[in-house]
Design a protein around this nucleic acid. Sequence first.
DNA 1: TCTACAGTCTACAGCGACTATAGAGGCAAG
DNA 2: CTTGCCTCTATAGTCGCTGTAGACTGTAGA
Lengths: 152, 152
Amino acid sequence: MKQMTIGRLSKAAGVKVTTIRYYESIDLMGEPERSTSGQRLYGDDAVQRLSFIRHARDLGFPIDSIRELIELQHQPGEDCAHVGVIARRQLADVRQKLSQLEALEAELKRMVSACEGGSIATCKVLESLGDHDHCLDSHDGTAVATKLGARL
Amino acid sequence: MKQMTIGRLSKAAGVKVTTIRYYESIDLMGEPERSTSGQRLYGDDAVQRLSFIRHARDLGFPIDSIRELIELQHQPGEDCAHVGVIARRQLADVRQKLSQLEALEAELKRMVSACEGGSIATCKVLESLGDHDHCLDSHDGTAVATKLGARL
DNA sequence: TCTACAGTCTACAGCGACTATAGAGGCAAG
DNA sequence: CTTGCCTCTATAGTCGCTGTAGACTGTAGA
């Protein structure tokens, strides 16, 4: 099989068609050839590249990091220290999110198990949420969850 | 102190001024009174409500859940079962994200420690990313990280 | 009173990484 | 030829804010 349509590429790499087109629009995937009727045609190299992107996204690498990694890939002679930096940055990011999520888990668990039914008026969950002085965050005005959701 | 400006409310609840106005625009915070010159004026109840919102956001509750919780708060006679459902849903969400992040952490750690320097051509990190058959995800075409980032 | 300067106002664009929708045209099997 | 899926472009929406521009207001010191 020499050339495949976007749908086949999509299945081969496990990335949605619309996402592939999106990647093309942000220059993460190069522009493919086109059939006479204008349909995109890809070779096997596209599967490789897209799988790479997908795997990196699965690991939470932001698009810009993936762009860097792909550029580095194309300079096989260079030292891979830079790659290590990017990967460790990502690992640190994941670990930070992990510890924040663990704190969230603990508080939610506590809240949920404190609730033994009854009326809204005495609900421990709402009480706990309304509690003004809680423990989770430094007071910089940004929600923990916001930080968590920002990337990854 | 009877009435406070948005800046004071911001400090009292630990939520940015712009965010408060945003909450107003999406009807999460009601419209406050205004001074003759048009500045927003809040009472202490606003601090309560905003702190509640902030705490819930810190725990990753999506805005829509918070809206539900606030509505429930205003029906003190009702049973709090619904509150429990919302909280447990959030807890389940957090736990799912935790387990995905743990898997990410493991793979990233493996990748990073496999890299002992050298040239790009032999870099284990890139090799690992390029590896077509990896283990993380079911093949539904959505990146794990996407799911993680979606909410929370 | 004048002058800084911080705070507030509205309206709208931008972020990241897609997803969804509309409306049109293409392609292969029956 | 028709059915039905695939592909095309372009645009708007998602979530939860954040940032910007440009104008006005409120307060404290000289």
